[in-house]
Design a protein around this nucleic acid. Structure first.
Length: 292
DNA sequence: AAGCGAACCTGGCTGC
DNA sequence: TGCAGCCAGGTTCGCT
């Protein structure tokens, strides 16, 4: 399910019930997701207070009061839901009423507020790991992760320097988490359309001979920022799996210009018909007329 | 080194 | 209705 906007939406949904709460009990309902849970997972979390809930790339990070960080990833199909029995101090609205666990509910965090936070992941591509905070940057999850697209680093010049000399298609370079972290298939397609750039153009073509940014590089940096911010404001995109922690859907799928619109007209010109092609095994949607 | 395809899993949809 | 085949928002491994 999740690219940066969906993960950020989930973070914002979970933060009010998780930050400051103590984990009173953890139900780990199977031995592994894609990888085994870390040894003593439930035990090491029990009794810990969650100091803060953050996001890096497509990962959620819950900092605990003993200096450990709970690292979580939603994979393709992961989601969290918050349930409450209505007692205790609850922030926000229509949380799920407490009910029976469902298929693919793999982890249940019971919190001191009375809420429980449930991780569900049918395909089990998600990640749950425990890492000492001091080792987080060098951990296998983050050591090779690139810049945050919503931070101050991303601009045309940075894009040009990241892409200089690369012959891979722009589509693939933008999908590469080692360069820019957090973009996935949907938002890469949408950002390229907004920047009027072809997904097939070599990534290195966004750098001038001297390595500076082309006009296209500047447009692309701006487009990435804009599309991510708009998607977060809409609560992310709900296609199959993404739901917010209160059970509501995101809205940004209604704002797609190209993603999953093969055969439909381009929103920017009459002659363009959205095409689909495959880059490195992933569908790319684009307008062959206005994206060059 | 960089780039690509396959693998990891389940579920939903399409077409026969 | 049933079933095979294809596709899905991510990451990682292994081969060129």
């Amino acid at each position: 399910m999740p690219e940066l906007p969906e993960v950020e939406t989930v973070r914002r949904g979970l933060a009010p019930v998780m930050e400051g709460a103590v984990i009173t009990r953890v139900e780990q309902r199977r031995a592994d997701l894609r990888a085994p849970f870390p040894a003593g997972f439930a035990k090491r979390l029990t009794g810990r207070r969650i100091v803060g809930l953050g996001r890096r790339a497509k990962y959620l990070t819950a900092a605990l009061d003993d200096g450990t960080v709970l690292v979580m990833h939603l994979g393709m199909s992961g989601s969290f839901r918050i349930e409450t029995d209505g007692t205790g101090e609850m922030v926000g609205n229509p949380y799920h009423k407490r009910s029976k666990l469902r298929a693919h509910d793999h982890v249940v965090f019971h919190l001191s507020s009375g809420a429980r936070v449930i991780f569900n992941d049918p395909r089990r591509f998600g990640v749950m790991d425990l890492v000492p905070a001091s080792e987080l940057p060098a951990s296998r999850h983050f050591r090779a992760v690139g810049i945050e697209p919503l931070g101050n680093e991303l601009d045309g010049a940075k894009l040009a320097s990241l892409f200089a000399g690369r012959r891979a298609p722009l589509k693939s370079a933008l999908m590469d988490q080692r360069l820019i972290a957090g973009l996935g298939n949907i938002y890469v397609c949408e950002a390229l359309w907004r920047a009027r750039l072809s997904p097939d153009r070599p990534a290195g073509s966004l750098a001038t001979k001297r390595g500076g940014p082309t006009v296209g590089a500047k447009r692309l940096a701006e487009a990435i920022r804009e599309v991510l911010e708009a998607a977060i404001a809409a609560g992310g995109s709900s296609l199959r799996d993404h739901i917010r922690t209160n059970g509501e859907l995101g809205d940004f799928q209604h704002a797609f210009a190209v993603y999953d619109r093969e055969g439909e007209p381009c929103l920017r010109n009459d002659r363009g018909i959205i095409r689909r092609k495959v880059h490195a095994g992933r569908s790319t949607f684009y307008c062959p007329v206005c994206q060059r």
